Computed example of a mutant assay.
Amino acid sequence: MEDKTIPAKLIYRKIKGKLSAVEEERFDAWLKEGWEHREYYERMQRIYQEENMQEVAVGKIQDAWEMFEKRVQGRWRVERKRRWMWGMSVAASVVIVLCLIMYYQVNTRKDMNIAVQNIVPGQYNAILEMADGSTYHLGEQQGSLQEKTGRLIKIDSTLVSYLPVSNKQEIPQEIVYNKLSVPRGGEYRIELEDGTKVWMNSESCLRYPVAFFNDMREVYLEGEAYFEVQRDVDRPFIVHSGEQKVTVLGTSFGISCYASEVNDYTTLVSGKVKVDFERRKQSFVLEPGMQVVYNKESDVATEKKVDVAEFVAWKNGKYVFKQKRLVDILSTLSRWYDFEVFYRNEDVKEVLFSGELRRFDDFSYLLQLIERTSDVKFVIDKKIVQVMR
């Protein structure tokens, strides 16, 4: 069956009058699909106005709705299922969602030792630094900015987009670089001048030319990003990240290169890429499903076959963990949920878990799932998570 739902947070943003042009189009199309959608939206409006709901509570509507669909039975492997039981109407589901919110908030505090819960999922958030030093905070506004070359940059709540150069007169005489930085607890997307699309994860930075005009397309990455490179046989696309240089013509791949992590990863989803370690004079040519891992401590790079979803699913709103150490899982989640970790027992770092999680799941709910499948315990105090046995 075709999925005609939209995220509850999008409806909330509509009520608050914060939709971008792209989001507005999506909302209008959804609203016109049936009378039940309009009734659903009007009910949500009334609930918000009558109950004077606070932003945090409303922000949990999507989480509660997804909890209702998942039907978790104390296991960590969670699969989202879009099945409505016995023709349940959308209007009735609103009542169930609100009940789930109240039940979930009460029972979460019963099941876990939580002093203050301030850990929430991340959101679209980035800082754009122009070549002239000016900076712009992205994530809510929409419109356009003018580059010092005179070219316009389109801004949306989730995307910054550079229009392609249409004629030689628009080509700058020198390479002009901009920088997009995504802070802890954020994510953002960018479409480069050549049509290449980049999804940027938390604590990441991309330095790139506002226009590509020579025989190579080169960008510089710190952190983690997923690339869908526009094919151009005459101009290879090169990503510099840490010790490695990744060269492609047109393909999809992910790179994780955090300074705080021991390993850097390059994972190929489709096409073909060449990964060079120039200092070590070592090269790898990857086929889809292959990955290069570079260990900074041992200065060793290796190639292996992997399930690519484990390394790039974040781009689609999920985390996939397969026999992953708890210390690595919490390190990954801390960048998105923006928290610090304190281990009361060192050995607990090595506990292994497997599972699939949605990036917008409530953090307390996630920790409950881990507790139920192990002897690990958590205590949350504001932005600090204490881990123990």
Score class of each variant (00 low, 15 high):
95 V>N: 11
95 V>P: 01
70 K>R: 12
98 L>N: 15
67 M>R: 10
104 Y>V: 07
82 R>F: 00
94 V>A: 12
65 W>D: 07
68 F>S: 14
94 V>K: 03
95 V>C: 11
86 W>V: 04
70 K>E: 15
82 R>S: 08
89 S>T: 08
71 R>L: 07
62 Q>Y: 04
63 D>S: 03
94 V>S: 15
81 K>P: 02
84 W>K: 08
67 M>P: 02
99 C>V: 08
69 E>Y: 13
75 R>V: 10
93 S>V: 03
102 M>C: 07
75 R>I: 06
71 R>C: 04
71 R>Q: 15
86 W>D: 05
70 K>S: 13
83 R>H: 06
72 V>H: 01
92 A>S: 10
80 R>D: 08
62 Q>W: 01
67 M>V: 01
99 C>Y: 07
88 M>E: 09
63 D>Y: 02
74 G>D: 11
97 V>G: 06
102 M>I: 02
87 G>V: 01
73 Q>C: 10
83 R>Q: 07
65 W>I: 01
88 M>W: 08
79 E>S: 06
70 K>I: 09
71 R>V: 04
98 L>A: 11
84 W>V: 09
78 V>H: 00
73 Q>R: 14
87 G>S: 06
78 V>N: 03
96 I>E: 12
83 R>E: 04
83 R>W: 06
84 W>L: 14
96 I>L: 15
86 W>I: 01
85 M>D: 13
67 M>A: 12
86 W>T: 03
71 R>P: 05
90 V>T: 10
66 E>I: 07
70 K>A: 13
104 Y>S: 14
63 D>R: 03
69 E>P: 00
70 K>N: 09
92 A>Y: 02
99 C>A: 11
72 V>W: 04
84 W>P: 04
99 C>L: 06
87 G>I: 00
89 S>A: 12
95 V>Q: 12
102 M>Q: 08
82 R>I: 01
63 D>V: 00
78 V>L: 01
